Computed example of a mutant assay.
Amino acid sequence: MNKKLVLGVMLTASLFATPISNVYADSYKSVTIGYDLTNQQKEDMLKYFGVDKNSASVVEVTSSEEKKYLGGTVSKGQLGNKAISCSYIEPTTTGGLVVNTHNVTWVNASMIKNALITAGIENADVKVSAPFSVSGTAAMTGILKGFENSKDGKKLDESTKKTANEEVAVTGKLGEKIGQDKAAGLINEVKNEVIKDKPKTEEGITKIVNNVTNNYNYTLSKDDVNGIVGLMTNVNKLNLDYSKVKGQLEGVANTMKNTLDSDKAKGWFASICASIGNFFKGISDSLKS
């Protein structure tokens, strides 16, 4: 049974029994906790993040919020009906995005960092965890809500939040086929080209997606490609400033450079072999004629 990651605010045991909206909203740190955790699990997650009600802004995230942003991207079976996992986010002034995950299986830190870049967040310390293993489909839902409720955070546009959540979902699905890091690297490279070139048509975006994916020895279905194109169409609509995100995108790419370069070399070798095979096949067909 697939479990999902939805993020909600960390509360103390005394607050767990009552609904929470926005406690200590002037705190630099924001912690989210899954609404459907038990009181003991909530206490354990508070200890894991090293916070209490006096040191962090706390909010809850429910499964309905997760469905709001992921309902059109992730299947109902994968989303489930419970909000389980938690997050910690502390906006910073320097240091870039530092993301760590624990007990998350379907998405990884690179995927989350990619989506945070799409959301326009430049510097933050982020942790995602749960009291037991969960998939992580809704990681962005709580992280972004937590960011908005932190002292140095800001209100994010709804389309921005929806696209960031979609990016995690599309990358996670792709990761099932080619691996998480490869999926994150591929999406990062495509996004880099889309933000830089700002194609004016969907055909232009499709061309970029095909050009990048063809460089690797990956087997992607038509649905996979369409999913990436759909995501990049929404990313393109955000009109992100390439000069501001270029360094962030390059940073993510550098962390997976060896893996991607190896796969690109394999893709190049496969292409060469195919060309040689076609060449000799052509000669053979000519001789037969």
Rank of each mutant, 00 (worst) to 15 (best):
residue 246 K to C: 06
residue 15 L to S: 12
residue 10 M to N: 06
residue 194 V to P: 03
residue 264 K to A: 06
residue 186 L to R: 04
residue 171 T to Q: 13
residue 284 S to L: 12
residue 6 V to E: 06
residue 255 T to N: 11
residue 80 G to Y: 04
residue 38 T to S: 15
residue 213 T to F: 01
residue 123 N to Q: 09
residue 279 F to I: 11
residue 66 E to I: 05
residue 81 N to Y: 02
residue 241 D to Y: 04
residue 212 V to H: 07
residue 181 D to S: 11
residue 37 L to N: 09
residue 195 I to C: 04
residue 28 Y to D: 14
residue 259 T to R: 08
residue 119 A to L: 04
residue 149 N to Y: 02
residue 169 A to F: 00
residue 240 L to C: 00
residue 110 S to L: 12
residue 82 K to N: 09
residue 273 C to K: 15
residue 240 L to A: 02
residue 28 Y to W: 08
residue 261 D to S: 12
residue 17 A to N: 15
residue 262 S to T: 14
residue 58 V to D: 01
residue 227 G to R: 00
residue 160 T to M: 12
residue 270 A to W: 08
residue 24 Y to T: 07
residue 172 G to E: 08
residue 248 Q to L: 12
residue 252 V to A: 02
residue 250 E to R: 03
residue 181 D to T: 08
residue 117 I to L: 08
residue 31 V to A: 13
residue 195 I to V: 15
residue 148 E to F: 06
residue 198 K to Y: 00
residue 36 D to W: 06
residue 130 A to I: 05
residue 138 A to V: 10
residue 209 V to T: 04
residue 138 A to Q: 01
residue 97 L to R: 03
residue 253 A to N: 07
residue 40 Q to H: 09
residue 212 V to R: 05
residue 180 Q to F: 03
residue 171 T to P: 03
residue 151 K to R: 11
residue 191 K to V: 10
residue 245 V to N: 08
residue 53 K to R: 12
residue 39 N to P: 02
residue 32 T to K: 09
residue 135 S to Y: 09
residue 135 S to C: 09
residue 219 T to V: 05
residue 270 A to T: 12
residue 59 V to I: 15
residue 263 D to S: 09
residue 72 G to H: 07
residue 265 A to D: 14
residue 246 K to R: 10
residue 265 A to Q: 15
residue 274 A to R: 13
residue 101 T to W: 06
residue 185 G to K: 00
residue 23 V to L: 11
residue 178 I to K: 07
residue 21 S to K: 10
residue 7 L to C: 14
residue 125 D to N: 13
residue 289 S to Y: 00
residue 5 L to S: 08
residue 36 D to Q: 08
residue 234 N to D: 15
residue 73 T to K: 11
residue 156 L to K: 00
residue 236 N to A: 10
residue 97 L to F: 05
residue 167 E to Y: 04
residue 44 D to C: 01
residue 263 D to Q: 02
residue 48 Y to C: 03
residue 184 A to Q: 03
residue 173 K to C: 04
residue 152 D to L: 12
residue 271 S to H: 07
residue 177 K to F: 04
